[in-house]
Simulated assay, not measured.
Amino acid sequence: MTPPDIDPDDALLDRIRVAYDTVAEPYADQFADELAQKPLDRALIDGFADQVRATGVDGPVADLGCGPGQVTRHLADRDLPVFGVDLSPEMVRLARERHPGLDFRAGSILGLAVADRSLAGVLSLYSVIHLPRPVLPRALAEFYRVLRPGGILLLAFHVGAGQLHVDTWFDRPVSFDGHLFDPDDVADCLAEAGFEVRARMRRQPYPGIEAPTERAYLFAHRPAG
């Protein structure tokens, strides 16, 4: 039982942070060029960038759960003002090393060091998968808080029910859970947070290069006014 003076969400974040610090080097090596093998993901990220520009909303874009920075780089190459945030200091170090000149910061999606209504867009690709369902609304509320009215959110996660536990990753000992979500339930959570969901897409995994779980992508925005 968790002692009453310890925030269970802090303990959760500590486990995730340690796991990703542990695998940061091999993870960065494996996923450095992942978008080259994922044409649909590239199209969705490019569509996100186009939507952010089309809104005319001023402000930068945040890549939340940026890992070693490959998606942040992709967005920067499309002339979006962007910064990356990751829970793992080792991931942030590698992102800065591999993508000099870009802005990478250590931080948590449960408590972003970002001002209210300051961002034109939020990209969150699989950063919520380590959150138990009861904690998910807290992250979505943070995304809503930091977006300007009219700002765009692209959220991606694994589809299903329950969770998958991992004890070994890249041949290194870790301990964390990956949570699967129902897209309709996540859409409802977004609506409860104040978002309007504009589009949904599901896809099967790319054979041989991804874990064998279905993926979901939700486009939403913070209503203007």
Rank of each mutant, 00 (worst) to 15 (best):
D167I: 03
G107A: 12
G59V: 07
P60T: 10
T55W: 06
I129T: 07
Y126G: 12
L112V: 02
Q204W: 15
P81D: 14
F219E: 03
L87Q: 02
L154H: 02
K38Y: 12
T55M: 06
A62R: 11
D33W: 09
H130C: 01
F170C: 11
P212N: 08
Y144L: 08
D7E: 14
P4T: 06
V52A: 04
A220H: 04
A211L: 14
Y206G: 05
V159L: 11
G101P: 09
A216Y: 06
D177N: 14
D63G: 04
I6K: 12
A115F: 04
A156Q: 01
F176P: 05
C189K: 14
D63E: 12
D77R: 03
A161T: 14
P100I: 05
S127M: 01
V61L: 08
L218R: 04
P212F: 05
D116R: 11
A211M: 13
D33R: 15
V57I: 14
R78M: 01
T2H: 15
G56L: 04
F48H: 02
V159T: 10
A32F: 09
I16K: 12
D103A: 14
P132S: 10
G69F: 04
F157R: 01
T213S: 05
E214W: 04
P183Y: 00
L12D: 07
A141G: 09
A24S: 03
A36W: 04
F83R: 02
D182A: 04
R73V: 01
L12W: 07
G107L: 07
D63Y: 11
Q70Y: 14
G65R: 06
L44T: 08
D50W: 01
H130E: 01
V18M: 07
G67T: 11
D14I: 13
V186P: 13
G67A: 06
D33E: 04
V61Q: 10
P134F: 08
R203K: 09
D171E: 10
V85L: 14
Y144V: 02
R145T: 01
L64H: 04
I109K: 00
H179K: 03
E34S: 12
G107N: 13
V85M: 10
P4E: 13
F170A: 12
G121K: 01
L147T: 03
Y20W: 15
E210Y: 05
Q51V: 00
A193R: 09
Y206M: 10
F157E: 08
R222N: 08
D9W: 14
R93A: 15
A19P: 13
L136Q: 02
D41R: 04
D46F: 01
P81S: 12
T168M: 05
V122H: 01
D171F: 00
A141S: 09
D116N: 07
Y206H: 15
E196F: 06
F195A: 05
S108W: 08
T2K: 15
